[in-house]
Simulated assay, not measured.
Amino acid sequence: MEHMRWGVLGASSFARKQMARAIHAAEGNRLAALATSSPAKAEGFAAFAPDLVVYDDYDALLAAGDIDAVYIPLPNHLHVEWTLKALRAGKHVLCEKPVAMQAGDFDRLIEARDKAGKLAAEAFMIVHHPQWHKARDLLAEGAIGRLRLVDTVFAYNNPDPENVRNRSGMGGGGLRDIGVYTFGATRFVTGAEPETLHATLEMEGDFDTFAQITAGFPGFAYHAVVSMRLAARQYVTFHGEDGYMTLTAPFNARVYDMAELHLRRQDSFETRTWRWPGVDQYVCQVEAFAAAARKGTPYAWPLEAARGTQEMIDRAFAAGGVA
């Protein structure tokens, strides 16, 4: 089978450093095209994809008949618009998170996906990392007994006013950038949705820089801190009646630290540890996406799953007094 040929809309730093490289490295996939008005930015992509075709217009790339799928790393407020355009152009679409700004936007995306007969998904890479499948399996097996609490932190310090996450009108802020992980990871492992939700937010203009979220899920409590103004830290702990398990690099495996999962049971003085030092979750994501698009393999994070996380984000803003 021929490679799935990918185009990238926009020469973002993250695309150049992570996703475009993952696309080119993934088995059965090839980075074939880039749309950017900056020749200098294109050079960084051509360094590892020398046969790259560069377009100076997004629509021109979407019109290319030799592109099967597109990856969209544009600012958040442009995601829905360009995902819809790509689907109408007959492309499979992997769009950065959050793929939409409100849960209601998913109706248009799902309708367009189904009409086009193409795969459209949010780039929620963590669900393709084996550490999260191990956590879900351990919970289902009863390794920690009845789950009573999920406690999680995801923080980094980025006060740069030029960064898109800190610019008004572009859909930035911590909840949209990294809250999707603290919310989505809990939903993925437990299969549960929150019944109640409370939020305390610190805002700078129209985006949040600090959020503390408490929620009540069926049978367990949830606590999360999400911030763009704290020293870098991340973990997730699932605390049950018989033990607990902690993921120490749950979201940026291999970047923040090596992926490790620690399981501690109250009936033992031992801690069991699983490690995944060599797994690139971005490559895993691309390969899973290509398999789903071409072979119909079940995809771990369809738009319907992403919608549930967006509903939590919407509720957090409402609970924090942000319209």
Score class of each variant (00 low, 15 high):
R272A: 11
A26L: 04
V153W: 05
E81C: 01
A306P: 02
G10T: 09
I67F: 06
V164M: 10
E241M: 09
A100Q: 06
A323H: 09
R148I: 08
A42F: 03
V153I: 13
M125R: 10
P302T: 11
L94N: 10
P302D: 10
V150A: 07
F210H: 13
A249R: 07
L138V: 09
E204A: 13
K85I: 03
A292Q: 06
P277G: 09
K85M: 05
M228N: 15
V255N: 14
E193Q: 12
N29W: 00
D208A: 05
D68L: 06
G65I: 00
E122F: 04
Y71N: 12
H239I: 15
D208V: 11
V54A: 01
R113E: 15
L87G: 10
S268Y: 00
A33W: 01
H239Y: 04
D114Y: 05
L119H: 10
T248K: 00
N76Y: 07
A305E: 14
W132R: 09
F220A: 13
T200F: 00
G90P: 01
H129R: 03
A49E: 08
N163M: 06
P130Y: 03
F269I: 05
G184H: 11
A46H: 06
F45C: 06
M1V: 07
F188G: 12
F210S: 08
R167V: 13
A33I: 01
G117W: 02
A292T: 05
A121F: 05
W301D: 04
P73A: 14
I178C: 10
R30L: 12
R16M: 09
T182N: 11
F207K: 07
W301V: 01
G216Y: 00
A86G: 12
T200N: 07
R294P: 01
P159F: 04
L78I: 00
L31G: 04
N158K: 12
H133L: 10
Q18N: 13
F238S: 04
S13E: 14
G278K: 11
A291G: 11
L201N: 05
A100S: 11
E241S: 15
Q234E: 15
R167K: 13
H79T: 04
A69H: 06
L9T: 13
L149A: 12
V8C: 03
L62S: 13
L263Y: 11
H92D: 14
L74Q: 13
G243W: 10
I126K: 10
R265G: 10
R294D: 02
W276S: 01
G171H: 01
